[in-house]
Structures are given as C-alpha cells and as structure tokens.
C-alpha cells in the first residue's frame, strides 16, 4: 500500500469525522484502537485473514468497540477492515492524526510511558516539547511497560528517549 493510498484513507477519515463534528473523539478512539491492535498479533491476523467473511471481521470490530466508541469510529474501522487494509490500519490512523493536527496547525508527539500521565504532567510536557521544537505540539500518550520508567517521545522523524530501558541498554552495550 503506497503512501498516497494511506494519505487518501487518512483524508477520507478526516473528512467524515469533521463532517460529523466528532473529530477529537474519533481521533482519540482511533488512536487507542490502533495501539490495542498493535499490541495484539492475533487480532491483527484475524482482521487481516481474507479467508474469513468480511461480515465476520466487521462483527469482530463491532464487538471490540461496542459501546466504548462512537458510531463514526466503528463505521470507519469497519470500512478499513472491509476494504482489506486492516494490516495498514495503524499507518492510516497515524496519518489521520497528523492530518487532523495539521488542520489545527499543530504537530503530534507520540509519547510512550510506563505509567499514565496526569494532566499537569501532560501540560508541562506539551510546553517543554513546544519550546524545544518551536512547534505547537499535541501529545498522544501510549502506555508501554517495556519503557520501565521515564518517557520516549516521537515527533516526526525525531526521537527523544529518556527511558530507563535506554539506560539499561546502554549499560548492556558497555558490558560488551
């Protein structure tokens, strides 16, 4: 699947969510669904299994999202699964979030943390990242226990790694 196709799907998602005035909600729900899908290989394989009927795969999506997501979000995910693009859903969602943030003149920063951040920490982090990059930054926090402690921030192609995992890896390299 080419980058143009991913951008096309992202533009379509953005247009539907904006038309329904649920852009922030859809953005947040799709981001969480994408993170859940990335962490579950069985779910990825099931949704990408072309031997299963499309109705069956769409029913799985409906069962997963249930009442925790709005109808627009469920409809968009069902559309991606029905088109056989579930393997690239994460990329499509990332492009959609970038597209949505750009519409607000903001840049998305994906932050991986071992624990949840409170609002105060998020505000300080947004301010710090905005000051460091000279951009208006939005933060998407992903809970990742492999980080162990600290944070890992991805802004575009830049990565700011302040995790305990990185320090342990450096220590491992020093032993070699």
């Amino acid at each position: 699947m080419s980058d143009n196709a991913i951008a096309g799907y992202a533009d379509a998602l953005f247009a539907v969510a904006a038309a329904n005035n649920v852009l922030p909600t859809v953005e947040d729900e799709l981001f969480r669904f994408s993170q859940a899908l990335n962490s579950d290989e069985n779910l990825q394989a099931t949704l990408d299994d072309s031997s299963l009927p499309v109705d069956r795969r769409q029913q799985i999506v409906e069962d997963l999202l249930g009442g925790s997501a709005c109808s627009t979000t469920k409809a968009l995910v069902s559309m991606i699964v029905a088109s056989g693009r579930s393997a690239r859903l994460s990329s499509i969602v990332d492009a959609f979030i970038e597209r949505s943030a750009a519409s607000r003149n903001k840049t998305v920063a994906t932050v991986r943390s071992a624990v949840e951040l409170d609002d105060s920490q998020k505000d300080k982090l947004v301010a710090a990242l905005s000051g460091a990059t000279n951009k208006d930054v939005e933060v998407k926090v992903v809970i990742d226990p492999s980080v162990i402690g600290g944070l890992v921030t991805e802004i575009g192609d830049d990565i700011i790694d302040g995790s305990v995992r990185r320090r342990l890896n450096q220590l491992r390299e020093n032993f070699r």
């Binding site: 710090a128 600290g150 302040g162």
Partner: peptide
C-alpha cells in the same frame, strides 16, 4: 513517586 520523578526529570531535560 519514582515514576513521577523520572517523568518530571525528563520534562525538565526537554525544556
């Protein structure tokens, strides 16, 4: 508390 200190330390370093 340790996790919080690590996050705060990271934010301070970025800032």
């Amino acid at each position: 508390d340790a996790q919080r200190r690590l996050v705060d330390q990271y934010i301070d370093e970025v800032a």
